[in-house]
Design a protein around this nucleic acid. Sequence first.
DNA 1: GAGCGAGTCATTCTTTTGGGTGATTTTATG
DNA 2: CATAAAATCACCCAAAAGAATGACTCGCTC
Lengths: 156, 156
Amino acid sequence: MKRHALIFGLIGGLLIAALQYTQYRFVAVEHSLEIYGALVAVLFAALGIWLGVRLTRGREILRETVVVKEVLVPAEARAPDPFSPDRTQQKVLGITERELEVLALVAGGFSNREIAAQLFVSENTIKTHCARAFDKLGAARRTQAVQRGKELGLLP
Amino acid sequence: MKRHALIFGLIGGLLIAALQYTQYRFVAVEHSLEIYGALVAVLFAALGIWLGVRLTRGREILRETVVVKEVLVPAEARAPDPFSPDRTQQKVLGITERELEVLALVAGGFSNREIAAQLFVSENTIKTHCARAFDKLGAARRTQAVQRGKELGLLP
DNA sequence: GAGCGAGTCATTCTTTTGGGTGATTTTATG
DNA sequence: CATAAAATCACCCAAAAGAATGACTCGCTC
């Protein structure tokens, strides 16, 4: 607003000077008063319009509408795999690393025999791991264990 | 713009009349010319400002800056439950409504006996539904069927 | 009314899973 | 080193799950 006041004052001063000048310049001319008034009117009208435009231009920038657009990003489309199990939950339940590993393979749909083959251990070992993991998860069946595991953030 | 021209003309006419009036009214007063000029200047400046504001007001809306802020939202974070199975996949695989229903309960960690009780049918019926669903899904075990079902968008 | 798909149920048999118990071997950890 | 936790394996038994087959009922359509 300081700049506006300055410009306004400047132009005002110039007009005052112009008024003084025209006063003696066209004093002898017929209808000088009407011409003078019309001149002043046109000048100030122009000034006013310019000022009015000027004053409102600043607000245009402020008038910005922020539209927050929520974009759904498919779960598979980003961070495809990087899953890390909830270690806290794991410790709380006392689930060992091996048990969680077996649990993940169970969730993958493998049979005890297949899991045993993948981990190079006997099927009996897998059974014990399962039994302990199921017990800690409070699950009676492997499908239930998988369900609980996902709920608890232990499985992807 | 027609309305503007009308208002402008009207006010212009009024001012001309005011000019004529003041011309004879304050003609004898000292410095009447300066007062007269100042009056006209102030009036027309005001009119100009008003007009300027008026003229640009319409454009402000047009010049409104719309900032679209796109926010990434994880798909799982919203609409937690409203899950609807992929009917297309279901039809492609030829999985019936009942089979899908049983499948969902299998995924929920229930035994065949429990599912039978929930659906008021015999355990053998559930076994049949499972067998057919597993066959259509190419699964040998229920855990595998659940896994496939989730991959295909049949299960939440 | 014949045919068909979906749902229902049963029977028999095999495989898998789960519970329980016990034992041995690694692997940390104080 | 002693000790505890974790991992490994074995054996037995019961329950659950799965495979294969056949049959019955509906509701619909040609």
